[in-house]
């Protein structure tokens, strides 16, 4: 390996030059510039907090901010609740359907967000699949408001993010010793109490990581809220897009992007700490 050369230790860094340069140029530098820009006055370029002041006093912006939080929270809960049975099945089943369920659970990832959102639009629209069906059956005479609102967006995002929830719960549940459940059952515990006293407590770390990953990905999603939410449904991601491409207000766009970034990083950070604390607690027992 050491083919001569006076500083052998530096040779090891040579392969890093291309990837690190590219990441510096198109990631670190732009991020630094964007963060800097958010603290600049639009006209003079000097340091100022006016863009932040504007964000936190702008009712529309705050409205979008809180809608982002509520939407992401709802999605996180739906994703986790719906992922759990699938992940549990995948972790414990030995049936031949396991492979089918696994493929079905993960395959939507390949389809991309546009196809799935389009599918939900066809299903949930006023003249869509569900409304057509329900009206034909004569259950109601006016279409249910299923799309262009929070409901539609939460449904769409839950679908997009389910694979992430399933995978993070699956890793966790696979780590739980199946003998614990067996011995509890042998000792006469009912299915329900095995679930409540053994599986659920031990899968808390998986539940937490599923909640967190779904929350952060929902908060930064653009396509689903933009397409299923309709024009009036604004969240941080859609507001950022509008500020950059329609209002061309870059400092303000940078502020919104930073707010989103801070939310995501804060959640990821507290989540990682919470997870490691939970994990160490479980292993001490």
């Amino acid at each position: 390996m050491r083919l001569g050369g006076t500083m052998p230790s530096l040779r090891g860094y040579v392969p890093l030059i291309p990837p690190v340069t590219i990441l510096m140029m198109f990631f670190a530098l732009p991020m630094g510039m964007m963060i800097g820009l958010s603290f600049q006055d639009g006209d003079t370029g000097s340091f100022s907090l006016t863009s932040y002041e504007r964000f936190f006093t702008d009712d529309l912006a705050l409205d979008g901010f809180f809608r982002t939080i509520v939407m992401s929270g709802l999605v996180a809960v739906c994703v986790t609740v719906m992922s759990y049975p699938i992940a549990y099945f995948l972790a414990r089943s030995t049936s031949r359907w396991r492979a089918v369920v696994f493929a079905l659970a993960i395959a939507p990832e390949l389809a991309g967000v546009v196809l799935r959102t389009y599918g939900w639009l066809i299903i949930l629209e006023d003249q869509g699949f569900v409304n057509d069906l329900v009206i034909q059956l004569g259950l109601i005479d006016r279409p249910l408001p299923l799309s262009h609102n929070m409901f539609g967006v939460v449904v769409g995002l839950t679908h997009v993010l389910l694979p992430f929830g399933i995978l993070s719960l699956l890793t966790n549940i696979q780590g739980i010793d199946p003998n614990l459940e067996k011995s509890a059952q042998i000792l006469g515990a009912s299915r329900l109490s095995v679930l409540r006293h053994i599986i659920l407590p031990l899968s808390v770390p998986g539940i937490v990581s599923s909640l967190l990953i779904a929350f952060t990905l929902a908060a930064s999603a653009y396509a689903t809220p933009a397409l299923l939410g309709g024009i009036k449904f604004s969240v941080l991601a859609t507001m950022i897009y509008q500020q950059v491409l329609f209002y061309i207000n870059w400092p303000y766009a940078a502020v919104m992007a930073n707010v989103l970034l801070v939310i995501v990083l804060a959640i990821a950070f507290t989540g990682a700490r919470l997870e490691s604390r939970l994990n160490s607690k479980l292993h001490v027992r």
């Binding site: 990441l23 510039m33 964007m34 820009l37 950059v244 940078a254 930073n258 990821a268």
Partner: peptide
């Protein structure tokens, strides 16, 4: 560092690159 872009939402990376 090589994994750090994962921590940043895509839309934020998009804004950063277009501003840059």
């Amino acid at each position: 560092f090589l994994l750090s872009p994962l921590a940043v939402p895509q839309i934020v990376k998009g804004v950063a690159i277009v501003l840059f």
